[in-house]
């Protein structure tokens, strides 16, 4: 129900900044502490064997310091990741493959292209489904089934086929992103486009409104409160799709490619930097969608 969505939004807006930030900061603090402790536990053996082997009388303090500053730790410490991320952004020009922002930009591009086409496709599919019983029965099972196939299995096939057809670069990656994006949009829009109550539909009927007018003036606006939460899910799924698509191609650029090269060379810090950046990217993209939602739906009942 849109009513529920509105109530949730209200809860979001009315709480003060401190009330919203504090719990998040507390969880972040605990995570960082656990992370540092995890570094000690996971890296201790490696540190003893590789770092402290030529240092006969090491103390516990030495061990802890070593686990937090190793070159190829099992689990790099937060400050190592932060430093690696920072130096990759600051020390290298933007067009250098060593700059993580370049990779983030490449991934963002295919995510956004996939997201836009996925959303359009999802909305069109939903519009077709709510207007035709035949399509509803024929398409919906296939749409659900399409999402049960693991994207990791589909991605290489799609890449090979699109590659044969001469598509390379953004297009194949965007196609995979789109494959993951359209589903939540379709499901939410089918529900949203069907959300007008009978009385509202009958009202349009008494005005002798055409199907197109009913869609444009009633169904679509009524569906928007359903659409936006699904867009937030879709853009996050699109990011996953774009990154997965970068894995099997041996792509030169992109956060997925960066993850892969990091694991080839056992460069755990690089893996974690790419991971952290992709998480930040996901948060940014979701926040951008939420921002658009707030602007578009600001007039609706709160």
């Amino acid at each position: 129900m849109p009513g529920t969505a509105r109530t949730l939004m209200k809860a979001d807006h009315s709480s003060s900044l401190a009330q919203r930030v504090l719990p998040i900061a507390a969880v972040l603090g605990v995570t960082v502490i656990v992370w540092y402790l995890g570094c000690i536990a996971l890296n201790a053996q490696g540190a003893i064997e590789r770092v402290l082997s030529n240092q006969p009388n090491w103390t516990t303090t030495d061990l802890v310091a070593a686990t937090w500053a190793m070159e190829r730790p099992v689990l790099p410490a937060p400050h190592q990741v932060a430093f690696d991320l920072w130096s990759s952004i600051v020390d290298w020009p933007l067009d250098s493959p060593r700059n993580l922002l370049l990779h983030a930009a490449v991934t963002t591009q295919s995510t956004l292209v996939g997201f836009i086409f996925g959303t359009l496709f999802g909305v069109l599919l939903a519009a077709a489904i709510v207007h035709s019983r035949t399509l509803d029965r024929a398409l919906l099972p296939w749409i659900v089934a399409s999402q049960t196939v693991p994207v990791l299995a589909i991605a290489p096939i799609v890449l090979v086929i699109l590659g044969t057809l001469g598509f390379s670069g953004v297009a194949p990656k965007a196609a995979i992103a789109m494959y993951l994006c359209f589903f939540p949009v379709t499901v939410a829009m089918v529900q949203g486009l069907r959300s007008p109550q009978r009385i509202e539909t009958e009202l349009m009927h008494t005005y002798a409104a055409t199907r197109l007018q009913s869609f444009w003036m009633l169904r679509l606006p009524a569906a928007l409160p359903y659409l936006f939460p699904s867009l937030r899910v879709a853009i996050a799924a699109g990011l996953v799709g774009a990154m997965v698509a970068e894995l099997p191609t041996g792509a030169q650029a992109g956060l997925g490619a960066r993850l892969l090269t990091g694991s080839y060379y056992g460069n755990t810090v690089a893996i974690w930097s790419a991971l952290v950046l992709s998480a930040l990217l996901g948060l940014t993209l979701t926040a951008a969608v939420a921002g658009v939602e707030r602007v578009v739906l600001r007039r609706q009942q709160r």
């Binding site: 109550q197 002798a208 606006p221």
Partner: peptide
């Protein structure tokens, strides 16, 4: 189709947006 009448329902049925 000729829009010969106006109809008022039991509830206002106003569009909230």
């Amino acid at each position: 189709l000729a829009r010969a009448y106006g109809y008022v329902f039991q509830s206002p049925a106003l569009f909230p947006w």
